[in-house]
Computed example of a mutant assay.
Amino acid sequence: MELFHENGHLTDEALSALKCGRALSDLSRLEIAEHLAYCDVCLMRYTDLLAETELEMPMRSCHGGLWHRIRLRSIRILTSRYATAAAALIIVFSLWGFGIFGGIVERSSQLSQSDTTFTQNLGSWPQQWNDSLNSIFDKLDGAFSAFSGNSNHNWRETNHES
């Protein structure tokens, strides 16, 4: 059986064999499927060929059961959303009743007072940083001097820092 015409399109015999499910090898089915995937002309011919056949009816309708499941799922989603919101409200009101939020308000006022103290002491920070860095470098210098055996060597003198 010829699958393709000289112009590269599928033959009518190949399309009807595919439609009826006649004996086609796996390789032939694969070639036909690959051709139908990119050739719109042959795909339209195959669609027209399938449109002539009568569609099969299902054994039982899924209309009633499907709508019933959709309704149940929408009710379940709706109630779970409201249940989550209600639980969150109960937790918030319980925490409020125990006075947890009062402590937060007090802590907030304490933080705002400490913020003004922080900004007032901000000007002394550069000097404090400089002093602490100098002490760190002095300790490192002492450690390296002890390690190298040169106790008279000073890091600041080498780098000409004051």
Rank of each mutant, 00 (worst) to 15 (best):
E2S: 13
E2N: 15
E2H: 14
L3W: 00
H5C: 08
N7A: 03
T11K: 01
E13R: 09
L15D: 04
L15C: 03
S16G: 10
A17Q: 08
K19P: 00
K19W: 05
C20Y: 11
G21W: 00
L24R: 01
D26E: 11
R29L: 09
I32R: 00
E34W: 11
L36T: 01
C39Q: 04
D40M: 10
L43W: 02
L43D: 10
L43H: 07
R45M: 04
T47Q: 11
T47V: 07
L49E: 00
L49R: 00
L49D: 00
L50E: 09
E52A: 15
T53G: 15
L55N: 05
P58C: 04
P58F: 04
M59A: 15
C62G: 07
C62A: 06
G65M: 09
L66C: 09
W67G: 07
R69I: 09
R69K: 15
I70V: 10
L72I: 06
I75Q: 13
I75M: 13
R76V: 08
I77C: 14
L78Q: 11
T79S: 10
T84R: 15
T84D: 14
A87L: 09
A88F: 03
V92Y: 09
F93G: 00
F93D: 04
L95R: 07
W96E: 06
F98R: 04
G99E: 02
I100G: 07
I100D: 06
G103I: 04
I104N: 05
E106M: 08
R107P: 01
S109D: 08
S109L: 08
Q110I: 07
Q113V: 15
T119F: 12
Q120P: 07
N121T: 10
S124W: 08
S124P: 03
W125F: 08
W129M: 06
N130G: 06
D131Q: 05
D131R: 02
S132H: 03
L133T: 07
N134I: 06
I136F: 12
K139L: 08
K139V: 05
L140N: 08
L140I: 14
D141F: 00
A143Y: 03
F144Q: 05
S145P: 04
S148Q: 02
S148T: 14
S148N: 12
G149V: 02
S151W: 10
S151N: 14
R156W: 03
R156E: 09
E157N: 15
T158S: 09
H160A: 15
